[in-house]
Structure formats: C-alpha cells, structure tokens
C-alpha cells in the first residue's frame, strides 16, 4: 500500500509553514549569537574602562571583533544561500549551482581565510605578551605566528580530508554530468 496517500495536503501545508518559520528563526538566532559575541568582545577589549588594560590588548580585541563580524556575515550569507536554493530551475542549472557550491576552493573560502588572518593578527598581538620576557617581541611574535599557522594548517588539512571523503565524490559526479 502506498502510504503517501495518507498524507493530507493540509498536513503538508502545516509542515511547510513550520519549516519556513524554523529556518527563519535559525537564521535570526545565528545573527543574534554573532551580534552578542561582537558586543561582548567590544565591551571587554575596546570599551573596557580599566586603566591597566593595555592598548595592545584593545587592538587585538578589535581584530577579534572584525574577524567575528566577517564570520558572522559569512554564516548569514551561507544560511541565506541554502534557504534560497532554487530547485525550480532546469536540472542542468541546478547541477551547475551545486557543482560550484561543492567545490572546495570556491571564492567564499577567501572570506574565511580573511577572517582567520585577521583573528590571527589579534592572537599574535595578545598572546605574544604572555610569553617569557627573555624573548624579544619579534621572537615571541614569530613563535605565536608559527603555532597559530600550524593549528590553522592542521585544521585546513582536516577540512580537505573531510571534503575528499564526503563531498568530492559528489562534486566529481556533478562535474562529470555537466561534461557529458
């Protein structure tokens, strides 16, 4: 028996409305979370009236905030893109869109790299001050930069491995379909 017959249109309409509203709510929540993050960091690092709070700490906080704003906008854009995906286009157009979306090195990666770079500057400024005084500013900055770069590189490698395992096979299928 085909159980699809049991699904009423009314029930489906309720579901689509619920889903639409959930999607809107999730997007809204993400926006609020990042906004709160930016406000907290702004309060702690930039507005903080404590006279002992070093200027360099404030500058590093500013970099964190800029990085968070970029990440926040990136996820906002990503959410919007997902909720605006148009399945009503001809199949070839949908495949072209998906192929671009599933390619690891797409232009959106640049925004992530920019955010990582800006946060990295903030990390170097704030963490290098906590290293032993025997090190020069250049040496401690170099140690922090290399450590940060190492962590980012490892994360990037994990990202590529994950992409190769899960998304690359799909991307290859899409590319092959377009070639044909």
């Amino acid at each position: 028996m085909n159980t699809s017959n049991n699904i009423s249109i009314q029930e489906t309409l309720e579901k689509v409305k619920a889903r639409d509203s959930k999607l809107k709510k999730t997007s809204h929540n993400m926006m609020i979370v990042y906004l709160i993050g930016v406000i907290i960091y702004l309060g702690i690092f930039v507005i903080n009236p404590d006279p002992d709070f070093k200027f360099s700490e404030r500058i590093s906080g500013l970099f964190y905030i800029i990085g968070f704003i970029i990440l926040g906008l990136y996820f906002r854009y990503y959410k919007r893109m997902i909720s605006n995906l148009d399945y009503t286009l001809p199949l070839i157009s949908v495949i072209k869109q998906a192929e671009r979306r599933y390619y690891f090195y797409n232009k959106n990666l640049l925004w992530l790299l920019l955010a990582v770079l800006i946060i990295g500057i903030g990390v170097v400024i704030s963490v290098q001050k906590r290293l032993p005084d025997s090190l020069t500013t250049f040496e401690s900055s170099l140690i922090v930069s290399i450590s940060y770069l190492l962590i980012i590189t490892i994360s990037f490698i994990f990202g590529i491995i994950r992409w190769r395992k899960t998304e690359k096979p799909i991307w290859l299928k899409l590319r092959q379909a377009l070639k044909e």
Partner: peptide, 13 residues
Amino acid sequence: SASEDDLYQEILI
C-alpha cells in the same frame, strides 16, 4: 514507502 513519504514531503515543501 517510508522513504517515499519523506521524499514526497520534501518535494511538496
């Protein structure tokens, strides 16, 4: 038929 129902819902959405 269970997957069929899910897919049907997804299409209607």
